[in-house]
Design a protein around this nucleic acid. Structure first.
Lengths: 292, 292
DNA sequence: TGTTACTATCCGAATTTCGGATAGATGAAG
DNA sequence: CTTCATCTATCCGAAATTCGGATAGTAACA
């Protein structure tokens, strides 16, 4: 393997333009260079790429078969190079994002699309998990930034920055005793079981309002149980509205009932981890989207 | 983009071995070459790949992120090269095979598996179609060799070479009038509709035995119609035995009844197209498999 | 037949590549 | 603490290669 990328370049452009001379002009090289570059490539590969008997060189059968291969290799080389140039400028080549599975996918997926357009050379690693997983992944350096709903307990070495709020709403199943009332009072709620979010470890609970309550570590499980009339709950609006649950639960406004009806959402990052402008861009986009 | 494949090679092996010197030994180069190769690569990419302050150089964060990229590019270069070496030797880099859809898939798929093991550098293009499609694809240079059941009419510029024979058997539907007989005579058959294969254009028919007959261009359609008791037919054994039809049709031996109970199978290739030894290998394998 | 545009080849200057030698540095061993 | 082995960066001169220009031969075209 003695050929160079330049030789591949000469081969590919000559094949496209159909002439060594024009290839030389396009590549800003002397014509003799393109000629000898291709000749040397042919020697090295052991393949005659062009038939030179006609006026303009024409690809041989094997040459035509090797052309797409060469184009592919060349493209990979260029991708490698531009990625390196990018990394040299921005000091980053991949960004690992982890997010709470309770976040609305519509929101985040549009961000990733934007991200891919704006930073085509950056690898994204997207993981998701429960709220604990998110904070831990950031703390343990398995992720660069995390996206999660606010939690009262956080690992020591990460910090939380608020981005905005999601509205929480009151839900219960179709056959739940409260379903027959148009409005419900605080007292009525206290008479039934509340489904409250907690961490995976069972700690870091939200405040339970009803003395009768279950602690559950996932909003999705909570909604599932609500569908089966096992209790009422306060959950983020987008989860109750999702296709899985929307038709099987009752929704009641409860603005006047609780103060903490808003759920804080924010990013977690390692303490002292200074963010590059890619990370900043990402967080700005998130703020915009959540504000809507 | 000014770096060379050699520099990538030096980077990758040095990263793996953890030392420039050992990389130089493995690559049969002077140590100074590896050192300067990597230094030049770093300059060209604008990235510091190794941290040289410790005893042994250790990858920087960016260097670690670029390593798999470099490995990938290198692997593509080597693949390109070995494929070229192969093509130089065998004059082929891809083989386009087209086959009659009536051929037993079990047979051919094992051949393709073998082929992939024996010639990992050859691209396979596999298409299938009716018997006309096969011959035409070869004639029109859309395929290199075709695999089909014998046909009385072939395009001018292709030739047929016999590989072996498939047994044909007599079939009819479960409720067909002939189903109640253990054996059937030629006269009985002539009293019922025969389903006969023809070309897509309606020409190139097999000989119809019964004066009452339909011409159909696919054995699968023929079997379908037989299942629905629309007539009797002579079809290749493997088609009648296939999962689709086996339980819905009656099979009768008919060796003593017809002389042409064998169906010739063979390859078609362009006139004068001299086969490389890859094509020969392929055809040999086919002969072996069909003989079984 | 002359003109134009193409390719292969030759050539000398300029550049790069190559391995060896050297010097400084580091970690292990005594 | 000293010695030693081994590492890396750098320098060096010879050798090889690369580079663009010049030239010659050739095919298409008017």
């Amino acid at each position: 393997m003695n050929w160079t990328v330049d030789q591949l370049q000469a081969f590919v452009t000559a094949a496209h333009l159909g002439s060594f001379s024009s290839a030389a002009r396009q590549l800003n090289k002397a014509q003799s260079r393109v000629s000898s570059a291709i000749a040397n490539l042919e020697i090295d590969l052991g393949i005659e790429l062009f038939d030179r008997t006609p006026r303009y060189p024409v690809l041989t059968e094997l040459g035509a078969q090797m052309l797409p291969e060469a184009e592919f290799v060349l493209a990979q080389c260029q991708r490698f190079d531009s990625r390196a140039q990018f990394a040299a400028k921005h000091d980053v080549i991949s960004l690992r994002i982890t997010m709470d599975e309770a976040l609305p996918i519509e929101t985040t997926s549009t961000i990733f699309t934007l991200f891919g357009q704006k930073f085509p050379h950056v690898n994204l690693v997207i993981t998701s998990g429960s709220r604990d997983d998110v904070a831990n992944a950031v703390a343990k350096k398995r992720a660069d930034i995390g996206l999660m709903l606010s939690s009262t307990v956080l690992p020591m070495d990460v910090e939380f920055e608020s981005l905005g709020y999601f509205k929480k709403i009151l839900i219960f199943g179709m056959s739940h005793p409260l379903a027959k009332f148009e409005t419900v009072s605080r007292t009525q709620l206290q008479g039934h079981r509340q489904l409250v979010l907690c961490n995976r470890s069972g700690e870091g609970r939200e405040d339970a309002f009803s003395p009768n309550h279950w602690y559950i570590d996932s909003y999705y499980v909570i909604c599932d149980l609500a569908v089966q009339n096992q209790g009422w709950a306060m959950v983020p609006e987008h989860i109750a509205d999702s296709n899985w649950f929307a038709k099987h639960i009752h929704v009641r406004s409860c603005d006047q009932m609780f103060s903490g009806t808003m759920l804080e959402v924010g990013v977690v990052k390692r303490n002292g981890h200074s963010m590059g402008h890619i990370e900043k861009w990402f967080i700005e986009q998130l703020k915009d989207l959540i504000a809507k």
